[in-house]
Computed example of a mutant assay.
Amino acid sequence: MILKRTIVKIITILTLAALPVVAHAKDGLTVTNDDASIVLDRAAVDNLPQQEFTTTTIWTEGSITFSGPSLHAIISLAGITEGTVTLTAVNDYVIQIPVAEITETTPIVASLMDGEPFNRREKGPYWLVYPYDSDPAFQTEITLARSIWQLVSISNIAPD
């Protein structure tokens, strides 16, 4: 088990070294797996496979089309496949999501609303959103609390 974790860490470090890194980017999203961190700039986030859905939220008026990469795609870049991820906002609001509850398509780290980038005053530049209207499971207090905006970092908590 120790050898497997060591190999995974080495592969992760090599993978992370090949990814685009922009230190202290204004709209950067930091992703940390153990001791290895990457900062994805907006271009790197926008170059990931994109998901899109239209939904209403309790924080906005009317239906909005959100698009951005899935959280799954982002944590996969950092080699995070198990445990729990911690997401932190610019104001230090923190939520945790078990990796087992993250699918390939939901939630997404929205970087566009109705096809346009949005800034911190509009809950951006990254907002973790679910297709709330598509399933009552996305309308629970837990899911709403996990809908973190002004997202700046994602990190893992290794399983025991």
Rank of each mutant, 00 (worst) to 15 (best):
M1E: 11
I2R: 12
I2V: 10
R5H: 10
I10P: 00
I10L: 10
I11M: 09
L14Y: 02
T15N: 07
L16E: 05
A17D: 05
L19V: 07
P20H: 15
P20I: 02
P20K: 13
V21L: 08
A23D: 04
A23Q: 08
A25Q: 05
A25V: 01
A25C: 07
G28Y: 07
T30I: 15
V31K: 06
T32W: 15
N33M: 05
N33K: 03
D35Q: 10
L40M: 14
L40Y: 15
D41E: 11
D41V: 12
A43T: 12
A44H: 08
T54I: 03
E61D: 09
F66P: 00
S70R: 05
A73R: 15
I74H: 02
S76C: 03
S76W: 00
A78K: 02
G79R: 09
T86V: 12
L87Y: 02
L87P: 01
T88E: 11
T88Y: 07
D92E: 12
Q96D: 09
I97M: 15
I97V: 11
I97C: 03
A100C: 03
E104Y: 06
L112N: 05
M113S: 09
G115P: 00
P117M: 07
P117T: 09
P117D: 06
F118N: 12
N119W: 02
N119E: 07
R120V: 07
R120Y: 09
E122R: 14
P125R: 04
P125E: 09
W127I: 04
Y130I: 09
S134P: 11
D135V: 10
P136N: 06
T140D: 14
T140C: 14
T140M: 13
E141M: 14
E141V: 12
T143L: 08
T143A: 04
A145W: 10
R146M: 04
W149C: 13
Q150M: 08
Q150R: 12
V152I: 10
V152G: 07
V152Q: 09
S153L: 03
I154S: 06
S155T: 13
S155N: 06
N156I: 05
N156E: 11
A158Y: 04
A158Q: 10
P159A: 02
D160S: 05
D160H: 04
D160Y: 01
